[in-house]
Design a binder for these strands. Structure first.
Lengths: 245, 245
DNA sequence: CAGCAATTCTATGTATACATAGGGCTTCAA
DNA sequence: TTGAAGCCCTATGTATACATAGAATTGCTG
């Protein structure tokens, strides 16, 4: 309460670069900044209300996240999400999440996954409660991811998964899940949770594989119906591509 | 010798931030900047010969790479490499490289891996030629990695692997490989190449698993002999940990 | 009318000056 | 002597002014 806002609560760091980063990232993930949009430093810094310096820091982080690509001389651009890149993303996601599920089954805290299990059992009911239920369902997915992260207890793996999930958020927005798919997904999640609870690492990995296969199939199906860019020139270099040598 | 050379050829971008990034990254990977070293902006910018602005950009990239961690208020620090973090790194590395090997076996260009095969067959001979041979051997490993990257043709996976390999370079420096281990490693690589050539994705994955297991065992053995930090407080967050929400 | 080249304009890259926050040290009091 | 409180100093965070490179446009020439 020393500044202007009384008590913002948990929003501790009010650094300008942090604000710029969160706003731009949110807008890209929400699709407000359409892929291909050129990000001009002066324009964006004026819009967000920060100087060019913190905005450059924000853009640097977005480039590291793979959400923004810098053209050689001319400006920056929100990266595209082609169907090919979605396939590629799921390829990495499978590798990481299968491994994470396998490890989680070995190291999990039973109490946490018992609680998750109960919620996934109730998920189909949840999905009958319109938009609010849908939001709650996605929160449940986030809790599941967090529980998995805590179980694997591996900063490298968690970091890699975080990078994948970033791009996943963009895809989730493109492909509007239908209720039927969501109910199936809940059942698949339940199986994974059960496997983790039982300490069955092999089943956890295979169930994750199946779930991601179904998820990708659904996403590609939705995108096939709608008019999404069918192939695209591929988003050069997903993560940071600063090759030092 | 990079500064005043008239035409360095392929080294196009002479941006100050790029120079600072490469120099700092190289020094961290080579162990010149000991883990735990505090990086002061003014000090480093004066030493490297750039202003604070490009140096901050360089540090931002190093943070994204996981080589540098920023303390809340007070400065930056070269991240530690504990034995635990090495185990964690190899856990991710196994997941990614097994998957990459599996995919490479399906999509590889036979000619490329034929050439690699010949070189790995000749590797044991190479390792009898002292330091020059050793350098050539490591170049061969790099060629192998590049061939794998080209075969998987997945920017996301390649990017994730690049991140892992960055940290691996630091470990490689800590754990001086003995000639016996290198000969075994060459044989293991040969098996992987053969599996990829044969299009046997399952064998490629399993051979990679075995190779990485042996590699980790060797590294941990070497570190056990020498006096390396046995556990450490774990390097908080390997990759970027800017949680937006 | 088409192609090439020079110029200009724009947006990034860099440097520096200023604001601010956090930590360490000193000093005073109990 | 020890504890705490306040001051100072240092290092990061931010803003702005300047340099520079690349691209598009426009004009000229064949």
């Amino acid at each position: 309460m020393y500044t202007e806002t009384p008590t913002t609560g948990s929003t501790g760091p009010v650094r300008a670069s942090e604000r710029a980063y969160r706003q731009l990232r949110g807008e890209i993930l929400d699709g407000l900044l359409v892929p291909g949009t050129g990000l001009l430093e002066v324009e964006q810094s004026a819009r967000i209300g920060v100087s060019r310096t913190p905005l450059r820091a924000a853009i640097a982080r977005l480039i590291a996240d793979g959400l923004v690509a810098g053209r050689p001389g001319r400006g920056f651009m929100v990266t595209e999400m082609s169907v090919d890149s979605i396939r590629e993303l799921y390829e990495v996601r499978r590798a990481l999440e299968e491994h994470a599920a396998r490890i989680a089954a070995e190291r999990r805290d039973p109490a946490v996954f018992e609680a998750l299990r109960a919620q996934f059992v109730a998920a189909p009911e949840l999905l009958r409660h319109g938009d609010a239920g849908l939001r709650r369902y996605y929160e449940l997915i986030d809790e599941f991811d967090l529980a998995l992260d805590a179980a694997v207890a591996n900063p490298f793996l968690v970091g890699a998964l975080a990078g994948v999930r970033t791009h996943l958020a963009r895809i989730r927005r493109l492909a509007r899940d239908n209720p039927h798919r969501l109910r199936s997904a809940a059942a698949e999640h339940l199986l994974i949770v059960d496997a983790v609870l039982a300490g069955d690492s092999s089943l956890a990995a295979h169930a994750t594989h199946v779930h991601l296969h179904q998820s990708l199939t659904s996403v590609l199906g939705t995108l096939g119906e709608a008019g999404v860019v069918p192939a695209g020139p591929a988003p050069r270099s997903a993560h940071h591509s600063h090759s030092p040598n």
